[in-house]
């Protein structure tokens, strides 16, 4: 457990450094970690002991968006949808703080404020995983190739559901960079063009053998 905790901490530090030291304005970074779905092997009922490789949530760092009053907002969500998001955040706060009905460090502010589209996208991402070869991270990993989508048309026109979902939630750029044992994904609500600087940083932060 101590090793696992240390690994989580350094993963968080690397994701944070990646975003905070970047010239561009990234909204979030996620590390999709290569894992094996042991449950899938048990469920097949055919005695097949091979386990399915998948990319599961390793860790994530959410920075948020810069306030730009002139920026065109995506389609506004309904009051009911916003209420649903707030309720989920309140419940998650309660879950994390021990189920006592309170929130993290007390106070209700965090559950009553609007949950932005990119916050919601990041939260929902925690529940997702990708079979190797499927989805944006899965394709990047199986092909050992960076996927860089910039502009809402590129996201909306992608064959990957995750990219289309990202566009709906206001992202303008999504990038998946494969590493030795997973994929680093970054998203931004601004258009960021492909550059080798980011890929070099990911390479040096996330590939231990380099």
């Amino acid at each position: 457990p101590a090793h696992s905790q240390a690994n989580e901490d350094t993963l968080q530090q690397r994701l944070q450094a990646l975003i905070e030291c970047a010239r561009e304005s990234w909204t979030y970074a996620v590390f999709w970690q290569l894992s094996y779905d042991f449950a899938a092997g048990e469920d097949d009922g055919g005695g097949n002991s091979s386990n399915t490789p998948l990319l599961a949530w390793g860790d994530g760092y959410y920075k948020g968006e810069e306030e730009k009053p002139m920026k065109k907002k995506p389609t506004p969500i309904s009051a009911a949808e916003q209420e649903h998001r707030k309720r989920v955040v309140r419940e998650l706060n309660s879950l994390i703080s021990g189920g006592g009905g309170g929130t993290v460090n007390g106070g209700d502010e965090a559950g009553d404020e609007e949950v932005t589209d990119t916050e919601w996208f990041f939260l929902v991402s925690m529940t997702q995983s990708f079979i190797n070869g499927s989805g944006l991270p899965g394709q990047a990993f199986s092909n050992s190739q960076t996927i860089w989508l910039s502009g809402s048309n590129a996201l909306a026109g992608s064959s990957c559901e995750r990219a289309r979902q990202g566009q709906v939630y206001g992202l303008e750029t999504m990038v998946c960079i494969p590493t030795e044992n997973g994929v680093v994904e970054l998203g931004s609500s601004e258009i960021i063009h492909q550059n080798s600087d980011l890929m070099d940083k990911v390479n040096s932060f996330f590939n231990p053998s380099n």
């Binding site: 860790d59 959410y62 955040v89 879950l95 994390i96 993290v104 460090n105 502010e109 939260l123 925690m126």
Partner: peptide, 26 residues
């Protein structure tokens, strides 16, 4: 929300804590 796996709890706690800090400083 019992389906949130235990392993992701740390990320979730961090996200919620930082969100609270952002809202407080806004």
């Amino acid at each position: 929300i019992p389906s949130v796996p235990q392993a992701r709890k740390a990320s979730l706690a961090r996200f919620l804590e930082k969100r609270k800090e952002r809202l407080m400083s806004a």
